[in-house]
Amino acid sequence: MATGGRRGAAAAPLLVAVAALLLGAAGHLYPGEVCPGMDIRNNLTRLHELENCSVIEGHLQILLMFKTRPEDFRDLSFPKLIMITDYLLLFRVYGLESLKDLFPNLTVIRGSRLFFNYALVIFEMVHLKELGLYNLMNITRGSVRIEKNNELCYLATIDWSRILDSVEDNYIVLNKDDNEECGDICPGTAKGKTNCPATVINGQFVERCWTHSHCQKVCPTICKSHGCTAEGLCCHSECLGNCSQPDDPTKCVACRNFYLDGRCVETCPPPYYHFQDWRCVNFSFCQDLHHKCKNSRRQGCHQYVIHNNKCIPECPSGYTMNSSNLLCTPCLGPCPKVCHLLEGEKTIDSVTSAQELRGCTVINGSLIINIRGGNNLAAELEANLGLIEEISGYLKIRRSYALVSLSFFRKLRLIRGETLEIGNYSFYALDNQNLRQLWDWSKHNLTITQGKLFFHYNPKLCLSEIHKMEEVSGTKGRQERNDIALKTNGDQASCENELLKFSYIRTSFDKI
């Protein structure tokens, strides 16, 4: 039985969820670079991206490699990797027998973001014989899940209580170790020597080791999670996991709180800001991140802002960003909400898709409305799209047979046209069989910064309504002859009103 693990408890099935942008060198404390989270699957090609990484700022997932063999891993080693800020997950990587050479110096898994409450997941690794993470000293947050690894031993010899604050939620089941077939031998045991430290858990006094050649490092209890030197002297209180010299914040392997210019500090002093819960960055760093993602459509890219001495992905609820200094300031009234469309555009074809934009005031991208039916549609669209004030790209209304009016965009005031449909149009209306009105132009103002209007096959939309939009939106004169079809717009509506004058002759039985 794995020490510190839980057996036999019912657990939810383990679901495996399925960018080499360097964020800056980590400095003297770390020998390499800070790398983003990685999802490495199918083959070993991307694994080489770990070569210079000291910190993975995010998670590391290595999974679904069915053609790899043990010899493929023999020359692979990433000794610079010290810390993973989120979680480490391995799933069905064939041929991998140990992690001792792959990650010989991995010391800390912070667990800032977890995989279903777990910071370390080893699942269905069919050839893994031992973990071998002999320098792993601290899992700051989260638990361990090690399950269905039929060859995995050296679990009962690990004292997880020396690595985690609590072992109650560890789930370590259905491994070879369960069948008591392992016969784990710690260093020196074969020669009758006791080389590794022994600890007591559940009444068992057991030597602690990761492999037959690597003991588990056990520091004096007084050192807590700070770690200790090879001689057993406690590291500085700002260290986490390990250090090369005692009581020196510049000799830590990793930091308990924050890293700044080669030393570990309790908090980031001005003019620095907390970033990702582990390091200090200056304003320029946060500003660069903001600008890199301002026009990016890459998933996970955030326009970072500053709030409460932190550089964070977005302002919290009730705050909006001051564009001059990136500071989050309290909103006066309802907060603006910028919604970034991942692929640059979004099609609204149902109430469900409209709900995804609920509360958005600025759309960074283009909207395509293609709704053919739905219950209580006008009210639903207004509830979900009615706060949109600005669209950076274009607005396209296409084959939306259920629409009679666009009044559900009740606050839309600006279409920038930074991206144009077919390279020309910022407003595009095609084949809307029941569209009769755009907006009530006596109450609604709309500016279209650039781009043209396109109207074709809107049989109940009168040309007068379209011409009014040209005047109000500032697009009059931009359109070419064929942009607004004269014969297919309003051709099934009563669009022309003329005053009919009647004269009559009164007659009676005795007068003409």
Results as ranks from 00 to 15, higher is better:
E33V: 14
T320D: 08
L155V: 14
G241V: 02
L102I: 05
L60D: 01
S161R: 09
N42F: 00
H236E: 12
S324P: 09
I62R: 01
K193M: 10
V144Y: 00
R263V: 08
L106Y: 02
E181N: 14
F116H: 00
C228S: 02
L99M: 12
V55Y: 11
G58W: 06
C53S: 00
T107P: 00
K193G: 14
N242Q: 13
N175M: 04
K292P: 04
D165C: 14
Q204H: 11
L120T: 02
E168Y: 11
R110C: 08
R74Q: 11
L174H: 15
I109G: 00
L164K: 14
R145T: 02
C239Q: 10
L164I: 12
D75K: 12
G262Y: 01
D39G: 02
G142H: 01
T194W: 02
R298W: 14
N308I: 09
C186W: 01
L174C: 12
S244Q: 04
V108Y: 05
N202S: 08
C264G: 00
N309A: 12
Y118M: 00
Q216I: 03
I62W: 02
S324G: 03
V126L: 14
R141C: 00
R145L: 07
S213N: 11
F258V: 11
L60V: 05
P270I: 13
C255T: 00
L106G: 00
F285T: 08
M321Q: 14
S98N: 07
P316A: 04
L99N: 00
T85I: 05
G32W: 08
G203C: 06
S98D: 01
G37N: 09
L164P: 00
L102H: 00
Y273F: 13
F258L: 09
N325L: 09
I82P: 00
N295L: 11
R113L: 03
A119P: 01
D169K: 09
T189Q: 12
T211L: 04
N117T: 00
C286H: 01
T189A: 09
Q276S: 11
C311A: 13
C239W: 00
C335H: 06
C234L: 00
R298S: 07
G58P: 00
A254V: 06
C311I: 12
S284T: 06
S166P: 14
I122V: 09
Y87I: 00
L155T: 09
S213W: 13
N105A: 04
M83Q: 07
C280L: 03
F258H: 06
Q216K: 02
K148H: 06
C264K: 00
S161I: 05
S161G: 10
R145I: 04
M137C: 13
R41S: 00
T221E: 13
D261E: 01
R263W: 06
C280M: 00
N149L: 00
E181P: 09
T229V: 09
K80T: 10
R41M: 04
I122Y: 00
N105L: 01
I158L: 11
G111A: 01
R74K: 09
I84M: 01
N175V: 04
R145A: 01
I222S: 13
C255R: 00
L29N: 06
E180I: 08
G300S: 08
E71H: 15
Y319H: 04
F205R: 09
D169P: 14
I62S: 00
L29S: 08
C209H: 03
Q245R: 12
D101P: 06
S323V: 12
S244L: 10
N202Y: 07
D248C: 00
K310R: 14
E51L: 07
I56D: 00
V218Y: 07
N322E: 02
D72E: 15
I139C: 04
P36D: 03
R145K: 07
V167D: 03
F116A: 00
P70S: 07
Y154I: 04
L47S: 12
V305P: 02
F258T: 07
G111I: 00
L120P: 00
C219Y: 03
T85G: 03
N322Q: 07
A190K: 06
P270C: 04
F78I: 15
G262A: 13
A190S: 09
K100S: 14
H127L: 14
K176L: 03
D72R: 05
K100P: 00
A156D: 06
L63R: 00
V206F: 13
G227V: 04
I158S: 02
G95L: 01
N135M: 07
S143R: 05
V218C: 14
L131P: 00
S166I: 12
Q216G: 05
D86A: 02
T85F: 01
C328N: 02
T68S: 12
R46E: 03
N242V: 07
H59Y: 05
N150C: 03
E238Q: 10
C209L: 01
C264I: 00
P249V: 06
C53Q: 00
R145M: 03
L327S: 08
